[in-house]
């Protein structure tokens, strides 16, 4: 006959294997969808004193502009924000002016005008539906927050960029998909975007796949958390102050309580 639940029946069978089950469960949690744990790099922005390498971020911006922006928007970043990673006001103005921004003229008709620093990066597609239609049904995600929107984001994006390769013999790769073990489900619609020499860096750095991937991660890290350096600097000052404050309060407390003994 049917037991009250599957669980009860199993429970009777597995009572002695509880401890083993816990370890197995932990393993199950990590191995889901066969997504490989990302490779861990020693980023300059790791740790409490971490900062974004501005040169690297500028190169990463070049990678975004020349490769990624064909499909991925960066809607939350304004041209003026680029001054944070070392571009001058004049460079930012010139860059903004090189983009055409949709606007309205005095008669209310839709028109295009050159960008200003206060404008935001122009998305490659007018809306999500168009983006999906142009990319086999899956809209390429906006990259402004991608580092925060994925677990261990920086390492994940780097691993994804460098992780493309031929599928193992026992894996069948679907039509229009590409194999990458770092992606959940191991297959994604994006072809490998980066490769050796894909861009020619303005500062002359040699553009290997590894270099391009590191640089684009630095750029995207800044794009996702522009406040990071200020936040960490403030954190150090705050914690030092609090340590002093707490220490002092503790001494004062002991002082006050000494009366009782």
């Amino acid at each position: 006959m049917q037991p009250i639940t599957d669980g009860n029946a199993l429970m009777k069978k597995n009572l002695l294997l509880i401890a083993l089950s816990i370890t197995v469960a932990a393993g199950v949690a990590f191995a889901e969808g066969d997504q490989r744990e990302p490779r861990k790099l020693d980023w300059s922005f790791n740790g409490i004193f971490g900062t974004v390498d501005k040169q690297s971020a500028q190169r990463g911006f070049q990678v975004y502009k020349e490769v990624c922006s064909a499909c991925h928007s960066l809607n939350r970043v304004a041209f003026r924000n680029l001054q944070d990673i070392g571009f001058t006001e004049a460079e930012v103005k010139a860059l903004a002016a090189s983009y055409q921004i949709a606007d309205m003229n005095e008669s209310g008709e839709a028109m295009q005008r050159p960008g200003k620093p206060s404008d935001y990066f122009v998305p490659p597609f007018p809306n999500e539906k168009a983006a999906a239609a142009a990319n086999g049904g899956a809209a390429p995600p906006d990259l402004s927050l991608i580092i925060k929107a994925r677990k261990d984001g920086a390492n994940y994006v780097y691993s994804l960029m460098t992780g493309f390769g031929p599928a193992p013999a026992d894996v069948k790769v679907g039509d229009g998909l590409y194999y990458n073990p770092y992606f959940p489900g191991s297959q994604l619609r994006m072809p490998p975007p980066l490769s050796d020499g894909r861009v020619t860096y303005a500062d002359g750095t040699s553009a290997s796949l590894d270099q391009e991937s590191r640089d684009v991660v630095a750029f995207l890290q800044w794009a996702a958390e522009p406040e990071m350096e200020e936040r960490k600097e403030m954190g150090i000052k705050v914690l030092i102050y609090l340590a002093i404050f707490t220490g002092f309060m503790y001494i004062a407390k002991r002082n006050v309580w000494r009366k009782l003994h």
């Binding site: 409490i48 954190g235 340590a243």
Partner: peptide, 14 residues
């Protein structure tokens, strides 16, 4: 309060 704020600040800033 001091100890609490230290733990709180650790999370907020780092």
């Amino acid at each position: 309060f001091g100890v609490f704020f230290m733990i709180f600040a650790w999370f907020v800033f780092f």
